[in-house]
Structure formats: C-alpha cells, structure tokens
Design a protein around this nucleic acid. Structure first.
Length: 428
RNA sequence: GGAAGGGUGGCUGAGUGGCCGAUAGCGCCGGUCUUGAAAACCGGAGCGCCGCAAGGCGCCGGGGGUUCGAAUCCCUCCCCUUCCGCCA
C-alpha cells in the first residue's frame, strides 16, 4: 500500500512512477474519496467535541442536583446526527482502503523502463552452459529412467501438477531443503522458522496476495483460510500489527511447501516439474531499516546465489524492468538456472525489496533511533525454489548412460550418495 | 467438540458508568552523581487520524448495542489458559 500522504503531496511523481509499470491505477478515485473522507472527519469531530463538552457539563450539573432532562434530550439529538455521519465516514474509509489496496508499489528509480519480460536486464552470469558429447535429455526423460518421480500415481491423488517423489527422489528433495537451511542459518545469519502452511485473509492482504491474486490460491472455505503460495506470507506476517521491539535487521528463513493454482496457466509447461501446483521452497525474509534496504537486497541476492554456486550450477541474474515487477515489489532480481535438457533458463528465485509497501498493509513498524515510529522495509527472496532446482541438477549432471552425477555439497545430506543410476531406485 | 476462567500501554498488573489514555512495578529515554559504569535520585515517554497551527477526535482483543456519557453494562465473534472428550 502506498502512503496516502505521498499520493496527495507528490501526485505527479506518483502518477509518473505508476505509469512505468504500464498498468492503469485509479488515483483519481483515491484522491476524490480521500477528500470526501477528510471533509466528513472534520464535520463529525466537531459534533463529537460538542457532545463531549455537553456530557461533561451534564455530569457536573447532576452532581449538584440540578435537572438536566432538557440538556440530555438535546445531546441525544446530536447523537443521532453523529451516528449518521459516522456511518457515512465508515463507508468512505472502507472505499478508500479498498482503492488503496489495488494500487501497486512504485518502481524504484534504479529500475529500468521496459514493456515486459523481454526488457529485463541480465546483470551477471555465473558458470558455463555445459556442452555435452550427446544430446542431453530433459528431466522428464531422466526421472522416468531413474524412477525417482511417479507422475501417473501422483495424478491419482490430486490431479496433475502434484509431484510424487520416490526413493532417492524424495531423499534428494529433503537433502536440498536441509542443505539450504543449514547454509542460510550457519553461513548467512538467518534464524530458521517453521510457520503455518495456511493463513487467514488478513495475512494474505498484508503481503499483497489479496485482493488481486485470489483466483491463484487454494482456499479452504470451511475455515476461511488459504494454503500459502510461498512462505513469504506467514513469515512476513509474523510481525503484523506490531511495533518491533528487537533491533533491526531481522533475517528469517523458512522451508515450506508452496501451493499455487496457476489458474489460466493450463497447457503451458504443464508437463514435468517446471510448473506445478505444489513445490517446496526455502524462503529468505528480511525486516530492515529503510536506509539500508537496497544494500540488504544485494546481500539477499548474494545469499540465494551462494546456494547455486555451492551446487556448481550455471545461472544468471536479471534485474526486472518496471513493467515486469510484481504488484508489491519496488525492485526485483530474478535468478535463473540453465537447464540444458530444456534448453531454457528456469526462474528459481525472485528477490524483492518491497520497501514499506507490505509493512504499511500489514502494520509492521519499528522505532527509529530518534524514537519515532516508522514502517520497516521488508524484503524476501527464494533461497531457492526446489522443483526447478531439481530439474537443473538432473539435466546438468546427466551422463551419456542416463545417470546423474550429484553435486558434491549434497553428499553429506544423502548418506554419501553421489550418483543416481537408471533402474536402481526403490520401486513403488 | 463441551465446560470454566481470561484478553488493558514493550512486559507484569490495577481499574467495574462521569477530568481514565488509563494507578503501580519492571523495562526504555534524558539528566544529576561517577574517571567510566552500576546503584540512587530527578525528569520524560502510548498509537492512529483531522488541522498551517492552536487544538480536537478516536483507540483498553474485533464488531454491534444500551446511555447525555462506556475500559467499565448488554449481545456477538475471535483468541489465550485450565479441565473433559477425541487424536498424530
């Protein structure tokens, strides 16, 4: 949510910044409703002031035993007016709030212009795109021969898009999670949390998934709860409606499964692990002081990159252009892994600075050194997402005979297993 | 799911219809003292909104009601604790 005062005081700048996103935002409605609301506030508060003064007087008169019936009747009439105005004010408040919730964040000045994903800038690359002496297989072909993933039986359970890992496939999934959590906790200074995987609508609104993304989320109607699309939601909302007392910055990391309906995405990349309804992810979340948030974004990206470097994978980092930024982000870097079987770059991390956008929605504040209360800046990034990470590991590590050499860094987490062999995995 | 008790400022905890935004203690900030710190003493300090300002309005889990007036009374929802039931 944008600062309403900023919209009022710097309307032209706000309009210009929003225009860079290339989507319309109804500032006129915001400003009009705001004006109406403020007029009502002034009006109703004048009346309330009168009522308070009169009530106090009645109290005093009663104490000295005087008759106050006439005065009471007059104040009661005032009360009626106040109630009517209050109702109108409440409506204006709700309207204004609803409007503000639909306005996206402003792109940071360092974010480039552009019309879409094609205009994102490659800011750096790591590793070489490996050349094979044979035609590299896709992860679909590999998992089939390795027997580490059972799509057919998985569909029986929940339909397409819900993977069922088997044997070393499941172990590899678990090893990756633990490897990443350990790295972030022991090397990067994050505190591990394990949050609820369902949240209420207030939490979803706080981080910006609601109201816009409602159709993309799994909703539990019986309990009015949502399955989380990312651990960002529960972890960021840990401090919802708080003035944080601990010193900033606060770094949290969490593993969680992520649930996404991917409404409207059917038919696109629906085979295999590239786009699924449920995947595992280790998430990084930061709560920081505003002055430091852009430096914190750089180190957040570095933390995510460290995962990939230690796994010996080839990746590139993109700085998203203004038009490709997600709703809540002011700046965002995507990290993409090279998948030789797909011959494609796969997004495995999205690291964003939301500035005070989420904090304002969620009411997450801190006390400045001067003792003032202000909104924190929140950041988060995947560190990293697993289904696609596994695709890259499989496709990059494959050998001519259909085996897969696993990254050395995972060996301690896999009981020393260094290689997946065709037709040797546990069977269902 | 059932029963009982409870949700007050960063924390603990008073307050049961009229200067209560709220007593007190701890913690916090500033000062005195000290080489420095601690202790002691003095002082300060909640959050939001409207307003150029003076000032005002609102907030005691959320919402609604009664009343001239509600932290205090009533209704409702949510949450926490304990006991019972069920159960990984």
């Amino acid at each position: 949510m944008l600062d309403l005062k900023l919209i009022r005081d710097a309307e032209a700048e706000v309009r210009a910044a929003l225009a860079r996103r290339g989507v319309p935002a109804d500032l006129d409605a915001v400003l009009g409703t705001d004006q109406r609301r403020r007029r009502l506030v002034t009006e109703v508060e004048t009346l309330k002031r009168q009522r308070n003064a009169a009530s106090e007087e009645i109290g005093k008169l009663k104490k000295s035993g005087e008759d106050t019936a006439a005065k009471q009747a007059a104040v009661k009439a005032l009360g009626g007016q106040i109630a009517a105005l209050d109702e109108e004010l409440q409506r204006a408040d709700q309207e204004l709030q609803a409007l503000l919730l639909t306005i996206p964040n402003l792109p940071h000045k360092s974010v480039s212009d552009g019309k879409g994903a094609k205009d994102n800038l490659i800011v750096r690359s790591y590793g070489q795109t490996r050349r094979f002496g044979f035609k590299p297989k896709t992860h679909l072909e590999l998992v089939e021969r390795l027997g580490i993933l059972d799509f057919e039986r998985a569909a029986r359970l929940a339909g397409a898009g819900f993977p069922l890992f088997v044997g070393l496939g499941a172990a590899l999934e678990r090893a990756l999670i633990q490897f990443m959590l350990d790295l972030h906790v022991k090397q990067h200074g994050y505190t591990e949390v394990s949050p609820p995987f369902v949240v209420n609508s207030a939490a979803m609104t706080g981080t910006g998934q609601l109201p816009k993304m409602a159709a993309d989320m799994y909703y539990l109607a019986g309990d009015d709860l949502y399955l989380i699309p990312t651990a960002e939601v529960p972890v960021t909302n840990i401090y919802r409606e708080e003035i944080i007392q601990r010193p900033l910055p606060i770094y949290l990391t969490a593993y969680s499964p992520c649930f996404r309906r991917e409404a409207g995405a059917a038919g696109r990349e629906t085979r295999g692990l590239i786009r699924v309804h449920q995947f595992d992810k280790v998430e990084l979340v930061k709560f920081v002081e505003p002055e430091t948030s852009y430096a914190e974004l750089e180190s957040l990206v570095a933390n995510a990159e460290d995962v990939l470097q230690r796994l010996g994978l080839t990746y590139r980092v993109l700085a998203l252009c203004a038009a490709d930024l997600s709703f809540a982000a002011a700046k965002c870097y995507d990290i993409e892994l090279w998948a030789p079987g797909q011959e494609a770059w796969l997004e495995v991390s999205s690291c964003s600075n939301f500035e005070s956008f989420q904090a304002r929605r969620a009411g997450i504040r801190y006390r400045t050194k001067a003792g003032k209360v202000d909104y924190v800046h929140t950041l988060n990034g995947s560190g990293v997402a697993l289904a696609r990470l596994m695709v890259a590991i499989l496709e990059n590590g494959q050998t001519a005979d259909g085996a897969v050499e696993l990254p050395e860094a995972l060996a301690p987490y896999l009981g020393g297993v260094r290689r997946l062999q065709p037709d040797q995995n546990a069977k269902l």
